[in-house]
Design a binder for these strands. Structure first.
Lengths: 215, 215
DNA sequence: GATAGCCGACCATCCGGTCGGTAGTACAGA
DNA sequence: TCTGTACTACCGACCGGATGGTCGGCTATC
């Protein structure tokens, strides 16, 4: 369940919703008061800093990156644990949305969801900042009380979605686990090797089309 | 590269090497002075506590678990980072040794190393304590300076070992990545489902024998 | 007697979280 | 449209506790 680091998210509900994307989370202080926007800024900052420094980042660092004070952060997330839980949920939601959006509307063959899944994972792997993110999140998991439950729920939903995708269960299992493993690999294999990644990706995609590609 | 939590390791070089396995790392203070034994105790304690509490465990907790004082620990590992680096290297070495030992001597068909790899990974996955360990280690990675290099070196060695294993590269890629992914999955799918794990394992093993098992 | 494994006490630092206060913001009423 | 008021996003200062690491000393071992 790798995430994306790209900007924005749900448009803020507040008055001046259409803020110029300029001053979005750069460490610069947020202008005006807008709960939704601040929460987004904090969540994005948390994702970035966790990816960069590990699950042990201090609230202060996250807050500064988001352009608020630590107290300001604590006003929106009552504790560190709550922040990390919200972060986890956010990343999971984003990933789900990304995969849904990546489903090819012209593709009606079995395995279309699996293909979207593979595509999104490998898209994320090109982006260095994102790579370790979901791994480190998983690391924070064991410490933070609620996180495991969120991930389990997510896994359950994927499983049922995949069974409706029309592919042989073993094939789904193999492809998705391999995609997950590939995302793990970029972490300990060092800066991703784009060529190898693409090869893996193409292999998985062809497998999802029912081909048995190797001799 | 999941590790094992089982006791011992290299037999200590000191005088009373054959200590009764009774008082091995249980939090009980070590008796006698033996560098090798103490280092082992600390490394094992570190592996256990990291698996249990995440990469953020304090030196004090690790030390107590190993039956030494924090100062005693610091005497053998000059800093926290050095400890975590040594731990990483240790786990990597153990995993390599486990896989080597798991190679079936009667098995001379292509893919014998891949089969051993798969077997060892899934053996570890049954053990709850071990599950998250290598994941959390990977998390400590991003923080601790030297760790990434250790893991990269390890990955390189596996790659070359696998190319000598006689299987089609794509097949190796698929199987090993899927095994890695499965180990990831036990983390966020919650307490491993033994039946599903065994099914995945058998699928990967049959794939390693050149079969193309699904329709 | 020398080396080194090991310890207790100590220290500077950092971190999560609290508290009291300030100032944008929204809204009611005129 | 202006004003007053209630609300709340946000902040700086602060606190208790924990943590990584140091230091000087003790003693088991060679």
């Amino acid at each position: 369940m790798p995430p994306k680091d790209r900007d924005a998210g749900a448009p803020p509900r507040g008055r001046d919703a259409g803020v110029p994307p300029k001053d979005r989370d750069a460490g610069a202080p947020l202008k005006g008061r807008d709960t939704a926007r601040t929460r987004r800024a904090v969540l994005d900052a948390a994702a970035r800093t966790v990816a960069r420094q590990g699950a042990g980042v201090s609230l202060d660092v996250i807050a500064r990156e988001a352009g608020v004070s630590k107290s300001g952060l604590l006003h929106h997330f009552r504790s560190r644990d709550e922040l990390l839980r919200a972060l986890t949920q956010d990343q999971v939601d984003r990933f789900v949305a990304d995969v849904r959006a990546a489903v090819d509307p012209a593709d009606h063959a079995p395995g279309r969801l699996v293909r979207a899944y593979v595509k999104v994972i490998f898209e994320d792997l090109d982006d260095e900042a994102v790579v370790s993110e979901h791994l480190l999140l998983a690391a924070a998991l064991s410490t933070v009380p609620g996180v495991a439950g969120i991930l389990q729920e997510d896994a359950r939903q994927w499983e049922s979605a995949f069974t409706a995708d029309g592919l042989h269960p073993d094939r789904v299992l193999l492809i998705t686990k391999a995609a997950d493993g590939a995302s793990l690999a970029t972490l300990y294999e060092g800066g991703s090797n784009p060529a190898a990644l693409e090869r893996t990706r193409d292999l998985l995609l062809s497998l999802s089309r029912g081909e048995g590609p190797f001799t």
